[in-house]
Amino acid sequence: MAKEKTIRVKVNGSERRATVEVRRNLADFLREDLELTGTHLGCEHGVCGACTVLVDGEAVRSCLMLAVQAEGHEVTTVEGLTTPDGEPGPLQQAFWDNHGMQCGFCTPGMICATAALLRENPHPTAEQIRERLSGNLCRCTGYQDIIASVLAAAAEDK
C-alpha cells in the first residue's frame, strides 16, 4: 500500500496538518483533502497552467509538485487572494471588471500566475505579460481581455 507522511503546510494563511500519501500531488491535496476546488486541473501534465498556485509567492504548477514537497512552505491558492471577508481581491476584481474570463476554467491559474508576475514586475508591458502567461492556456478569450485585466491590475497598484 502506498506510503504516507504527515505534513505541515501553511495554506491561505492557516497552518494545516495532514497525513497524505507520498505520491499525492499538491493539486489533489488542495482540491480533495482541503476542498479548495478553485485550483483546476486541465492536463495534470504541467502544460496548461490551470493548476497554478503560489508557493512562497512563486507561481508553481500544483499538478507537478508533490504535497510532501510543500512541507514547511506557504501555499496561496485563488481562494487566498480574496479580501479577508471573501470578497474578490484587487486582482480578482480586475479580471472580473475587464472581462478577463469566459468559461472561467483557466481563471484561477491565470490569476495566480499574474500575482507572481506582478510581484516580480509590478508594471509589466503587454508583451511581457504575453510572454509570462504563455504557460497558461485559455481556450475562450483569445487572451486579450486577460492581458487587459493584468494591465488594469498593475495600473491600480500605483
Binding site: 476546488t37 478553485g38 485563488v78 476584481q93 472580473w96
Partner: peptide
C-alpha cells in the same frame, strides 16, 4: 464573475 474569479464556481 464573482464565483469564477474567487475560485468558488
Amino acid at each position: 464573475g464573482r464565483e469564477k474569479v474567487t475560485g468558488t464556481a
